[in-house]
Simulated assay, not measured.
Amino acid sequence: MRFFIVEIFGVPNHFYYICIILNYCDKYMANHPQWSDEYWLLLMQLYMKKPIGIKPLYSRAMVDLALMLHIEPKFLYDQMFFLQKSEQPSLKLLWDKYSKHPKKLEQKAKLIQEQFGFQHADTFFQDVDIHETWEKDFRPLEADKELSPIKLIMILNLYFQLTPVTMVPETPEIEDLAKLIHLNPEKITNIMDIYQICDPYLTRDSFMAITPLLKPCEEIWKRFGNEDPQNLYTLASQLKEYFL
């Protein structure tokens, strides 16, 4: 939020100061601490991949780029909109130079990745202290490499749409989710059993409390279990793109 003082004349012996509030949309400003102007070309390369255009927020390619840059997908998503509509001379120059020359764009993008060490990220970030936050949602769980927090989020979303009696592998919705997130239905129902332990509206024996998956399920429940289910549903709908 920025404030400008405007002096208005016209009233004898008086003038008024009007405080005009301009609400700047920071999401269109490249102000992320990890952002570099060289990344515009990486975004352009992603934009130009077929089908050409803005990619879904949690598409696999968008998330992969976000993980590589350690920049949230939402920021890159907003930047891609800005890239598409921007009238800034510097960005228009990039469009003119690369949009119709995909090979040149690919070569330049590869060079940028090499310069920033992204092609050898393990070595490049070896001595760098990176505090991962959102990235962990897309990493495999230590307790079960087949699972990740985003898969637990998808399962919790379906959990709120079913009743305990329908939380069985044969339920069509569970079979559909299993195909989408590449798990077997039995594992999904096992996770739902753990969520029943977390659910304050249910009385369940804690015989499964010894499972190493209890803690990650509790963490997801704390984040979403007591929130508006519609918010979780919206997020899960967006996350579907990651698995397609």
Results as ranks from 00 to 15, higher is better:
Gln45Lys: 14
Glu132His: 09
Asp176Ser: 14
Ile153His: 04
Glu142Met: 08
Phe75Trp: 06
Met68Gly: 06
Tyr98Thr: 01
Pro33Val: 03
Thr171Lys: 15
Gln34His: 12
Ala30Val: 02
Glu87Lys: 11
Leu158Glu: 14
Ala109Gln: 01
Leu57Ile: 13
Leu69Phe: 01
Gly117His: 12
Asp137Leu: 01
Ile153Lys: 12
Thr123Phe: 15
Phe82Asn: 09
Ile112Asp: 01
Arg139His: 14
Tyr39Trp: 03
His101Asp: 15
Asp144Cys: 07
Leu111Thr: 04
Gln119Ser: 11
Trp40Glu: 01
Leu76Arg: 06
Glu173Thr: 08
His120Leu: 11
Pro73Cys: 04
Tyr47Pro: 08
Leu67His: 08
Asp176Phe: 14
Ile155Glu: 08
Leu158Ile: 13
Leu147Glu: 03
Phe116Ser: 03
Glu114Cys: 12
His32Ala: 05
Leu76Ser: 07
Asp137Cys: 05
Phe138Pro: 04
Gln119Tyr: 04
Gln34Lys: 13
Met68His: 02
Gln34Asn: 15
Ser59Trp: 02
Lys110Gln: 10
Phe118Cys: 02
Gln79Leu: 11
Lys49Ile: 03
Met62His: 05
Trp95Cys: 05
Trp35Thr: 13
Asp127Val: 00
Lys74Pro: 03
Met44Asn: 00
Thr166Ala: 15
Gln119Gly: 01
Ile112His: 04
Glu142Leu: 13
Ala143Met: 13
Lys74Trp: 08
Ile130Lys: 13
Thr123Asn: 12
Lys49Thr: 00
Leu42Gly: 03
Lys85Phe: 10
Glu146Ser: 13
Ile174Trp: 04
Asp137Val: 10
Ser148Arg: 12
Leu46Pro: 05
Phe116Ala: 09
Gln113Phe: 06
Asp96Phe: 01
Phe138Asp: 05
Asp37Lys: 07
Gln84Ile: 02
Phe125Gly: 00
Asn31Val: 14
Ala66Trp: 00
Leu141Arg: 00
Asp129Cys: 09
Pro73Lys: 13
Pro172Met: 08
Lys136Pro: 00
Ile153Tyr: 04
Asp122Leu: 11
Ala61Asp: 15
Tyr58Cys: 12
Leu93Trp: 05
Gln79Asp: 08
Glu106Asp: 10
Gln107Lys: 14
Ile71Gln: 04
His101Pro: 02
Ala66His: 03
Pro102Val: 05
Asn157Lys: 12
Phe160Met: 15
Ser99Gly: 09
Ile71Asp: 10
Pro33His: 08
Gln84Phe: 11
Ile153Leu: 05
Arg60Met: 04
Phe116Arg: 13
Leu105Arg: 03
Gln84Val: 06
Gly117Trp: 02
Phe116Val: 10
Val165Phe: 00
Glu106Cys: 07
Pro89Gly: 07
His101Ile: 00
Met68Trp: 00
Leu91Gly: 05
Glu72Arg: 09
Lys110Ser: 15
Ile153Pro: 03
Ser148Glu: 06
Gln161Ala: 06
His120Ser: 09
Leu43Trp: 02
Gly53Cys: 07
Glu38Trp: 00
Asp122Ala: 09
Ile155Arg: 01
